[in-house]
Design a binder for these strands. Sequence first.
DNA 1: CACTGGAGCCAC
DNA 2: AAACGTGGCTCCAGTG
Length: 448
Amino acid sequence: MEQATTQQAYSLFHQGTLALADVEANGMRVDVDRLDRTANKVTARITKLEGKLKNDEVYQTWRKRFGGKTQLGSRQQLGQVLYGEMGFKSDNKTKTGRVQVNESALEKVDHPFVKRYLEVEKLKKLKGTYLNGVKREVVDGLLHPSFNLHLVKTHRSSSDSPNFQNIPIRDKLIGKLIRSCFVAREGHQLVEVDYSALEFKIAACWWKDDAMVAYASDPTLDIHRDMAAECYCLPVDEVPKDVRFFAKNQFVFPELYGSYYVTCARNLWSVIESGGLKTKEGTPLDEHLLEQGIEQKDFEEHIEGVEEAFNDRFPTWSDRKEKWWNRYQRKGSFPLMTGFIISGVYSRNNLMNYPIQGPAFHCLLWSLIQMNRWLKQKRMRTKIVGQIHDSIVADVHEDELDDYLLLAKQVMTESIRKAWDWIITPLAIEAEVSPPGGTWFDKREVLL
DNA sequence: CACTGGAGCCAC
DNA sequence: AAACGTGGCTCCAGTG
């Protein structure tokens, strides 16, 4: 990272490196016996399911086609069997023109072999990447992942050996199998504190759009909920949680970072089925849209209208993003709010994303530095053991839980705003705590 | 045998 | 004019 920078940016990463070195040294406790038992169970399940796959007639076709080169893990081979030999239709191609044989493509193939294949692949990912990855790196019951500040173009962090920042959570079963192997130290509890809607708030700080700032400042307003309502023609107070989640990830963030209605419409439509999206009354969303007079063929035009309304809702953003892109094209470099100066060749979408992604993480890093410093100065038994972009994971002594939660709230929502006056929206946090003797999977939200 | 790029999947 | 961003890890397939 040989970029020009300011003293404050240098200092943030200097202090940040020292703090993250403490975090690495602290390490997260692992229940190695449970990890081993889980790995054995998952291996047995994989073996059993693979045995069934090998007895399927599809596998005979596969053997006939590839002989001794047959490999169950080869998606390319599976694609040839399904789309070449068995006559299933493939629609999507990869970047380089090969047939896509990913989960969403395979979900469209109605065959028990394929269904089972997907289940096995999920378990192999769990075993190969996560269970084995943790086992490989754990030392005396402690895991010490690396946290890097020198690798990411946006000046975010990354993590490796193992990557602590992509442990499964969305698939509840897979998440449970791996996360319940992470435990607190004796007499401690795991506590995860994360910033609420941090990237959207930082976007508001960056673009200084009044409506965006208002949305990011008023806890009763919720842009993801409201855009979900518009995209799927629902009343704002009848947006299910999963529908909000998809609107956030298939509309709001893509639009902020340079996508447009055609792509958004395609993705918003495809998650209706794959996500099993329904209204609160249980009507599938495609049926609900039909009742509102929107067929699949009308959906793109509908989202085009939602996009226009989104642009009108945040007029300063709409205006400033073009000027921002033009400014970069003249100068060839640009500053982040945290003092980093980025120069080099970047796309339009990079210019939309980098000023948000980096500084959002810097809020987390600044807070982690202060909290780590305080814990050490006060000789607390609580230790910070990890960091996931907008969240901090700590191994908290039971007697120090209240102090720690108070510290987090003070530093993450108040002190930081005194240090950085460019933060013009309130910041908020949420905390999840594992019960004494519980695991990372057992964390439950607590009121602050 | 070492290495590389693509594809896929996990997270935010 | 073009079309969301950032990572790490694993397996396969191909190269030398």
